[in-house]
Design a protein around this nucleic acid. Structure first.
Lengths: 199, 199
DNA sequence: GATCGAAAGCTAACACTATTAGCTACGTTC
DNA sequence: GAACGTAGCTAATAGTGTTAGCTTTCGATC
């Protein structure tokens, strides 16, 4: 007989398991009973490792953010200018396609006012991402303020497109890949016109 | 005693009442018990007018779409070119601010494969909106394909910005109104470069 | 290797959710 | 005024998350 010593869970590993389930069955379909069953345990036992289902969902949100950040930083690494922008845009879209549950998680206001561990990690991850993003737009000669605006615009554009795509809100009949690239190109073109007068 | 003859409900009026509640308490917080109480009725009675809670939510989605369409068409009415684009963008953002519940409803995949009445209305409303939108970009001299791309991009940009704004995903410290206008301006600037060679 | 305490499992229970069945009473119409 | 359909009700079911309290198992210490 295999003496199958039972798996040792902790908040992190439970959240990761829950994130997988969210990707498989949908973020909203994630239930505590489902999570418990997947852990091979009855529902109340889950509370030994985690405060509540909201706690788990908050954890998923943080996990999603850091994983997305990692993916974007990896995509941008080494590249610069247009090439880097396209790479990040593609990586974002690919990430969402691969992780539908995590995407939904990211597009919800945080359930609990987060305080737990992982919050610091999330903060530093965001700071890292912002640094990379600012570097991303370095070649476009924007003022400091305009860099913020340009970043917000790029994020909005990518996030919105991917959102509308996954909810099936776009009319059919025209290729989405083409539209996506067209949009990023047009964004870059618009950016050129925003460049500050060369000093 | 006032003989207060009780209000006659139907699917439409129930959906409208539910939409108000969704705006007040949040789309996800909307519960059948809450809806029943607001109607002055016990939960099971709601089913006399509506098939299920999912049915109500599908109704809210349709209602949100048609109301948004109306608001956008009203905003665009008479205007053209840049002015019209700014007007539509502002109207969209204002609508979402005024109807947070409806916005969330719109950004969710439809709960039930809609079939009920109001679906036709939704369809025609969408067709109307597309017509207005195409007219909106008429001045920019885009090819037919590019018009679709430009429309998708504008929608993505607006939807994404408003989404990130309402979920509090933007870093603080820089004015959002300014960023929003900046983004629309940059979009229009990029559009100019996409204009087809004048034939 | 036996013992003891903490960690993690369990069952039972509670309050909530949506939903159905079946009954009663209102209100309209003939 | 009688008949009938609409719309209310209560009671009950199956699901949700969550807590309390008990038991088992695991790991470390003697």
């Amino acid at each position: 007989m295999s003496v199958a010593t039972r798996k040792r869970w902790n908040r992190q590993s439970v959240v990761e398991a829950a994130a997988d389930l969210a990707d498989k069955h949908g973020y909203d379909a994630l239930t505590l009973a489902m999570l418990a069953q997947h852990m091979g345990v009855k529902p109340p036992s889950v509370y030994k490792h985690v405060q509540s289902l909201d706690d788990v969902k908050t954890g998923i949100q943080a996990l999603a953010a850091t994983r997305l950040t990692d993916a974007l930083m990896a995509a941008a690494g080494g590249k610069s200018g247009d090439e880097a922008v396209f790479a990040v845009a593609d990586a974002y879209r690919a990430f969402v396609k691969a992780h539908p549950g995590l995407q939904v998680a990211m597009s919800r206001p945080s359930a609990t006012a987060h305080q737990g561990p992982g919050d610091d990690e999330l903060e530093s991850s965001n700071r890292q991402l912002l640094g990379v993003a600012v570097g991303l737009l370095g070649e476009y000669q924007l003022s400091e303020d305009d860099t913020i605006h340009a970043l917000r615009m790029l994020r909005s554009l990518i996030h919105g497109f991917v959102m509308l795509e996954t909810t099936g809100s776009f009319e059919m009949g025209y290729d989405l890949d083409t539209s996506y690239r067209w949009a990023i190109e047009t964004y870059i073109r618009g950016l050129a016109g925003a460049a500050r007068p060369t000093g």
